[in-house]
Write a protein that binds this DNA or RNA. Structure first.
Lengths: 184, 184
DNA sequence: AGCCGTACTGTACGGGCGTACAGAACGGTG
DNA sequence: CACCGTTCTGTACGCCCGTACAGTACGGCT
């Protein structure tokens, strides 16, 4: 109940922010493809055309949600870390900070076949692969591949499924778990 | 063109088995909802109505693929394990053996809202929750929740993303990683 | 007052999905 | 031969999705 009172919906981007907020939550719960514009619209209390008005292709919604995370992940990728622990620390921090939309980055959108160049899906897939390569190293052996994917999976699941917990608790525990899996 | 090689289609379930095989692979790669009957049909080389003929609601395809895993998981749940290590060992073995369809059990079908009673989705969700509860214990603290989900995520990702690797390599490495994360 | 941009609503369209149904090809059995 | 069940094709339907477009309410400018 931020500014409702349907008569006074005057504040410019009130609805827009509420759409973003609802979409972030629904995407985290059900995933990108499984969340329709109608779902978001009914969660906010408007028509689905209203959602389409603010975010013209549906991709833009995801793009705008991901934008802040994209900056962080670019910085993460471009940074040279001394040891693996420092990288994992930064990675866990990144995942926790953006856990509400981390599911989109980890698996969604870059689903399978479609590769319209320039789409957010392509960039996301590049990010995800970059993280995996960073964890597994170039030309990894089978055990390295297993361990890298185990770390990726633990990060995604633990971050997404414990959104209700405070960041610090999750961060500390998850970092320890990821380090243990990575160095096993 | 219907019977392309009359010698080898003698058993009635030739097409049926090919559909099952293709569906298992596609479900593992893209997920259940993201794989259409037309995708499976074109992978096999038949019409999508042919697929629908053999597996009438789409659910049956998933149900039949999951069936062998369901037996194993029921046995797993009903078994009393002495220590956590024994349970994790059995769990990893289970995940590796059924890794081609483990994605369905871990996340798909029980997506969000729909709960038609008696559907395979409901049973799957029960299985998944049972595994999580077994890992996290009853009334877990925050750190326990994070660790349990980290283990679940590592199992799913590592198993699904390394289907091309031999079972023993994945099993050994993954068990070590899961144990390390669990006891961290 | 007139005008215009913003923020929506209502309606409609095209496409993809799972599904239903009628019929063709074919081997087996009376 | 006639009959039939199995296996598949072709066609069509209804549903939901994202999208397009015209129209409406309204506050801010000149």
């Amino acid at each position: 109940m931020t500014t409702l009172d349907p008569r006074y919906d005057a504040p410019g981007h009130a609805t827009r922010d509420r759409i973003l907020h609802a979409a972030r939550q629904l995407f985290a719960e059900r995933g990108y493809a499984a969340t329709s514009l109608a779902d978001i619209a009914s969660a906010v209390g408007v028509t689905k055309t209203a959602v389409a008005y603010h975010f013209h292709p549906k991709d833009r919604l995801a793009a705008e949600l991901i934008a802040p995370a994209a900056n962080d992940i670019i910085a993460l990728i471009e940074t040279e870390f001394g040891d693996e622990r420092a990288f994992l620390e930064a990675l866990v921090t990144f995942v926790i900070r953006h856990r509400a939309i981390i599911r989109l980055i980890m698996e969604e959108i870059g689903g399978a076949d479609d590769a319209p160049p320039g789409s957010p899906g392509e960039a996301i897939r590049a990010f995800r692969d970059c993280i995996y390569v960073r964890l597994a190293g170039p030309d990894p052996d089978p055990a390295g591949r297993v361990r890298a994917w185990a770390v990726v999976g633990s990060l995604q699941y633990a971050a997404v499924k414990t959104i209700d917990l405070p960041e610090e608790v999750v961060r500390e525990t998850l970092l320890t778990a990821a380090l243990a899996a990575y160095h096993s």
